[in-house]
Amino acid sequence: MHPMKRISSILLTILSLSVVGQDQELLELLSSSDPNDKGYASATFKSTRVINGHSIETRSNGTLEFIIGHRFGRINSGYDEFYGLDFSTIRLGLEYGITDNLNIGIGRASFDKVVDAFVKYRFLRQSKKSPVTITGFTSITRKTVDIPGLDGIDRNAYAAQLLIARKFNSSFSFQLSPTIIQRNLVETPQDDNLLLALGLGARYKLSNRIAIVTEYYPVLSNKSAQFEDSFALGIDIETGGHVFQLHFTNAVQMNERGFIGETTDSFWDGDIHYGFNITRVFDLRPNKS
């Protein structure tokens, strides 16, 4: 190569490098992180439910959520029962965000005609300052079905939960849910009135809109042999405004008293129910325009 050409090409390279270098320098000047960013973890779970149980998520101020839960019969019940689809229980619920952290909700389930009401409060958010989000949950349930001898306050149960979750990265979230449930009337003397359980829940995102979720609620207090711990495995599909949760579980009830304390089917023996939750959110605040 002619030396002149070589030198002019070196010149050009240096010139162009210097331009790039300046941009890079400017970018570095700006690279200091946003002081307004508190680093809140968002969407630890896609729904206000992990599957059967509540997640740490709360709906924001002014948001109304309509939630429909369905659990079908056992898929091992054979063709006569159309593999469980002939039987179904349903819970209809409405939940509302009074503030971004404080939610209230009501629901009614077809199983034992249980009505429920709850209050949920998120008092700590995962951020640069906190490794976890913590939400408190408390509910009252009442069986309104006509059962001879079941009367008055015996129909009620009260649940309280501390929901503690961490979003480890954009895909994986984990929740611990210590739970106590006071049942005013239990089935047998072997069942403690005060039920203690430690719920475990996890989510793994497969893509932006699809996640695998699982939930297990081992009961720690005394229970009679007819009752099983609830287990569930499912997928969440999110489509903007809707969340579809499709799952397999041994529980047919959708309130804490029911699925934690009154599940009689064994997942590991194949007594598995197909179920789904569908949610739709509405923003009730007037449009500012």
Binding site: T63, D100, G240
Partner: peptide
């Protein structure tokens, strides 16, 4: 965003 859920979708999806 005015709607927090929209903000979540914007960031997540």
């Amino acid at each position: 965003f005015k709607k927090e859920l929209m903000q979540e979708h914007f960031n997540e999806n």
